[in-house]
Design a protein around this nucleic acid. Structure first.
Length: 691
RNA sequence: GGCGGGGUAGCUCAGCUGGUUAGAGCGCAGGAUUCAUAAUCCUGAGGUCGGGGGUUCGAGCCCCCCCCCCGCUACCA
């Protein structure tokens, strides 16, 4: 460690994008680990502030609003509320949950932007860009298609013609079209503010690789996860390109510069600043100075995120913070990997996901159970997998049997023998070696578990916390108080007194993982405000009357598992399909220019050094020709051979990876990015004309 | 194809800068036990650590080649 313990800990979790509900993958990635971390810090009395909020800007929300014909506000309001419900339901205990569409945030983000601008942190460039008057917005290069000036190909993109390979700018296209509305865009000059990241390579390298900032030790890179470091190194060594930090959109934080109407900050610039805004809001409400959290060198900054956000939090945001000046940079970014679901990737569009609010409807008391399972399989260093049968096993065999049953045993025995009062503590000299071993283990547990949590080893930490309950089970079984009760009441009292201590310790040590269960245990064992330091071998007072405790964890049966699995992949009411808008009208003559034929695939092989390309040899009736098609991710060569396909035969030839492609195979693309052949029914032959 | 991260017991995962018989939880088998939510406790069987070379007294950990999975990226209208 290069620095002494920080005075304050500023903790953030990735701002969820207000364009859809929260699923288990989100929780396991950026929220549950942070919640465990923060709960532990609070329990140890550390000065910690954990903020989050909805990320409500960006093109995706705008596009969706346009498609649904509603204002973006409606979408973000809906999901802002939905996401808060999900977090609250799983006891994700943010100190403050904000949102980026608030006036306060706009002001903060604008001030931040102006500061960078005044420092010369941006490169300002004016460029002519296409504007879609129908969609009322400027178009990114890839949203424009047209005819290639060099080869005449009709489907060239604004950045490149896929046919002849020529690099283009949108303005070179003949007959450009917006892929948003199909209309013809017009050219308008626009100004963009670029962040020249290349300037920052040298200090970034030192910061990431050596953990040094301005020549001073800042953090220990060895405490960072391998995949986080790897990804960052990869980006830095690959050379950092300038990135546009503004967009021409009407939804977002307006660029606070005269003449910049219709421009907003790039969502990735404004979102992380949302962390700062949220902190300010909390501080205003609590009479604190936000700078103590973000600018005091004695404060530590920690970002919890999923692996898709690494570059932004480890590279771009640090650049912004450093360029602005005065801010702390993160001392760690413990990004998690992804969580898969029942053998497949989580997919919103295929509804292959477990939505938190739906889960809570099906399992109203299920917060702790889900937290436990998600922690047990947390993707800390590699992708992991959630299955409902595993959920059942862990809830039934670990939570219910090991923990729940242990607590129940203690409760029942204490009631039976002592009318529910914790018996008197034994004298030191009466303790057996086994007793001492138990007490030693109890004394060691808080430090061990806390240490694991602080090193972001939540999975192992939870296991150790559960081991305390296991210890209790073992002790009870070995000591057999039910046999001693009649012959040796004193010994029985000792055993039961110690066992009660074990439960008391569980109440504190499990709190970061299972807050509801911990609260129930604490209440039943007469503990109030259990802090980490209270986890002691003598924490439960003799004479305490134990309260009633319902069954802690209901067992999950196979039918429940089956029902949950069956829900996966079914289209819910919430999935809005993204339908491509109709293109401009064409004449019949235009259509007749296309020569579409039936073809039969004779041979097929993978194109080397290209992941997506297959080389097909097709009998077109006219001839046998080679067609290169980007379908290798969806079809194996042997699946394609022998198929009848629809072929555009008069498409100008184009070289792909050195192979000349003479035509195009027509494919239908599905919602989830899949492809299907557009194949004729039976009874047709190669060369048959399609019209 | 390039870059990054992974491939370790049936399942989900640990294995720090290379060092005695490779670990945990669950599952499985056998046994013990009954206070308890048919719970608990003990014992045990399971691994050529993706494959093949190499460095080393010694490699799951280091080097080279290959295969597979995930992410970014390129090629794909």
């Amino acid at each position: 460690m290069s620095k002494s313990a920080p005075k304050r800990r500023m903790i953030t979790s990735a701002l969820p994008y207000a364009n859809g509900p929260i699923h288990l993958g989100h929780i396991a990635g950026a929220y549950l680990p942070a919640d465990i971390h923060v709960r532990h810090l609070r329990s140890t009395g550390e000065d910690v502030l954990w903020i989050c909020g909805s990320d409500e800007h960006g093109a995706a929300i705008t596009l969706r609003a346009k498609k649904e014909g509603i204002p973006p506000r409606e979408i973000v309001d809906l999901y802002h509320e939905e996401m808060q419900k999900a977090f609250t339901g799983l006891d994700i205990s943010f100190d403050h949950y904000s949102r980026t569409s608030s006036p306060k945030h706009h002001q903060v983000a604008q001030e931040f932007f102006l500061n960078l601008m005044e420092k010369g942190g941006f490169e300002v460039k004016t460029e002519e860009q296409f504007f879609d008057e129908k969609a009322q917005q400027f178009l990114a290069d890839r949203y424009i298609q047209g005819t290639c000036p060099s080869c005449g190909h009709d489907g060239a993109y604004g950045d490149q013609c896929e046919k002849c390979g020529k690099t283009l700018s949108p303005t070179e296209l003949v007959n450009p079209k917006s892929t948003l509305s199909g209309s013809t865009p017009v050219l308008k000059p626009t100004t963009l503010w670029y962040l020249p990241m290349g300037r920052h390579e040298s200090w970034l390298r030192e910061y990431i690789v050596e953990g040094k900032l301005d020549g001073q030790p800042h953090h220990d890179p060895k405490t960072w996860k391998a995949h986080v470091l790897g990804q960052c190194r990869s980006w830095i060594e690959g050379g950092l390109e300038s990135r546009a930090m503004t967009r021409d959109l009407d939804w977002g934080v307006p660029v606070p510069v005269e003449g910049a109407e219709g421009k907003v900050l790039y969502v990735w610039l404004d979102a992380p600043i949302g962390y700062i805004t949220a902190t300010m809001e909390w501080c205003e409400a609590h009479g604190q100075d936000w700078k103590d959290w973000w600018q005091d060198p004695n404060a530590e900054l920690l970002h919890f995120i999923g692996k898709d956000n690494i570059v932004f939090h480890c590279i771009i945001f640090p650049i912004l913070l450093k360029e602005h000046g005065g801010y702390n940079l993160p001392t760690n970014v413990p990004a998690n990997e992804f969580m898969n679901l029942e053998g497949d990737k989580i997919s919103t569009s295929r509804n292959w996901a477990v939505w938190v609010t739906e889960y809570l409807e099906d399992f109203p008391e299920g917060s702790d159970a889900m937290r436990y399972v998600l922690t047990a399989i947390m993707p800390e260093q590699k992708d992991s997998e959630f299955t409902w049968s595993d959920f059942r096993d862990k809830v039934n065999n670990e939570l219910a049997d090991v923990l729940g049953n242990f607590v129940n045993r203690v409760l029942v025995l204490t009631k039976k023998y002592y009318g529910g009062e914790v018996p008197t503590a034994p004298a030191q000299e009466d303790l057996t070696d086994t007793d001492r071993a138990l007490l030693e283990a109890l004394a060691a547990a808080p430090g061990k578990i806390g240490g694991l949590i602080q090193r972001h080893r939540y999975k192992e930490a939870q296991l150790e916390a559960m081991n305390v309950a296991r210890l209790g089970n073992k002790y009870l079984t070995e000591q057999e108080p039910w046999k001693l009760q009649k012959t040796d009441p004193e010994r029985t009292a000792t055993i039961m007194h110690l066992t009660c201590q074990v439960v008391g310790n569980c109440a504190v040590l499990l709190e970061p993982f299972l807050p509801q269960t911990a609260a129930k245990l604490a209440a039943a064992f007469g503990l109030t405000d259990g802090r980490w330091a209270d986890a002691q071998p003598d924490m439960v007072q003799a004479g305490t009357t134990l309260g009633e405790l319902p069954i802690l964890f209901a067992k999950i049966d196979d039918d429940t598992v089956a029902a949950q699995v069956a829900k996966l992949g079914q289209k819910g009411g919430d999935t809005t399909r993204e339908i491509m808008p109709a293109k401009d009208e064409i004449t019949f003559d235009d259509f007749t220019k296309l020569d579409l034929r039936v073809g039969t695939v004779l041979e097929c092989e993978k194109v080397p050094k290209a992941d997506k390309l297959l080389k097909l040899t097709v009998d077109t009736g006219l001839d046998t020709r080679t067609v290169v098609s980007g379908i290798a991710e969806h079809f194996k060569p042997e699946d394609v051979v022998g198929r009848q396909v629809t072929l555009l035969v008069n498409l100008a030839p184009r070289k792909l990876r050195g192979i000349e492609s003479q035509g195009m195979v027509l494919m239908a693309s599905t919602d989830d990015g899949g492809l299907r052949f557009v194949s004729p029914e039976e009874g047709v032959q190669p060369g048959d004309v399609i019209s």
